Amino acid sequence: MTDGIVWLVDLDGWMSSVVFARGISPEELAVRMGADPGGATEPITDAEVWQLGITQWRSAEYGDGVVRVGRSGDWSFALEYGDSTGGDLLVELSRDGVEVVRYVPPQEHPPADFHYARDGVFVCGHGLREEVWRWGSEPDLLLPDLVAAGILSSDGSTFLPPEDEDYRTGYRHSLGVVERRFGLSLSPAVLKDARLPAYAVRGTPRMTLSP
């Protein structure tokens, strides 16, 4: 694996998230996220997802959520689109000994977020450039890695990089810690150019490409 995941920081205007899962197949990951077994589309690209009639927001109800799934190294992954379910289901996704990592890019404002669950437990999470605030059953799991990377003081209470550091630089440092700790990698070509099966995980998207 050579691409890593730090490059995700530089994606402008990409409003989806990425879920990585170790210990289950890509299809099982989609099913745990709400898909029907065997309900995949033909393999499609990132651009073609938006031809599926996705409505992201509806008044007083959930919007549509779609994932494209695949595998990279030891990890299955799901690229989330629309009103997907990854943020709601991390504990469920990780049941039966599975490990799950989710990266949420900044939406209307920073920060981006990292979440990690294992075997039915939300283990740890933090905002990128907000690593002094950590949560989960083991909030300090990554503290030694963050200290070694020069992001936090040894007790985890002080943010070390200069205040005027560009936020993307800080994001790269922090996401690099996650990348190395869990051995994550995803080729940039997967996001836009690769053809991957897609599944509906919430709502009622059309799930066939418009003409």
Rank of each mutant, 00 (worst) to 15 (best):
G53V: 01
L128M: 14
R71F: 05
R129N: 14
G13R: 03
V9C: 04
E131D: 04
L29G: 03
E179G: 09
W135A: 10
R181C: 02
P110T: 05
R206G: 04
L191V: 15
R206D: 12
R58M: 03
Q56G: 07
S72M: 00
T158M: 13
K192S: 12
L209D: 14
E92P: 07
D119K: 10
V100Y: 08
S187V: 01
W14E: 14
L93M: 12
D145N: 13
R168P: 02
D83R: 12
Q107D: 13
S137R: 15
A40Q: 13
A78K: 07
L184G: 12
A40I: 01
Q107H: 12
V201R: 00
D46L: 03
S153W: 01
S154P: 07
E42T: 03
G63Y: 11
R118G: 02
T208Y: 11
G53I: 02
L184A: 10
V100G: 01
P161C: 06
P205N: 06
V19L: 12
L196R: 12
R22I: 01
V6F: 00
V178W: 13
L29S: 05
A40N: 13
R202C: 05
G87R: 13
P37V: 02
A189E: 15
F114R: 00
S187C: 08
Q51A: 11
E131S: 14
E179N: 12
A198Q: 13
S153R: 01
F182S: 10
I44S: 02
A148N: 07
V177K: 10
E165L: 15
P37C: 00
L128W: 14
P43F: 01
G136C: 10
E48L: 00
G203L: 06
D36M: 10
W14N: 11
E163S: 10
S187N: 14
R129V: 04
F159V: 00
R180I: 03
P205M: 04
T158C: 10
G87K: 09
V201K: 01
P106Y: 12
G38D: 02
Y199T: 04
D113T: 09
D140M: 09
K192Y: 15
F20Q: 09
V178S: 00
Y62I: 07
L93N: 08
F77G: 03
V147F: 12
P205S: 05
V98Y: 08
A47T: 08
T55W: 08
F114E: 07
A194P: 09
A198H: 14
E28G: 04
V69G: 07
W14Y: 15
R206S: 13
R134H: 06
D164W: 07
P162Y: 02
L89W: 10
G53K: 03
G156N: 06
S17K: 11
R206Y: 04
L90R: 15
S84A: 15
V31S: 08
L143R: 15
R68N: 04
A78W: 07
G87W: 11
S76M: 04
R202S: 03
Q51G: 12
V190M: 14
P139A: 08
R206Q: 11
M33V: 09
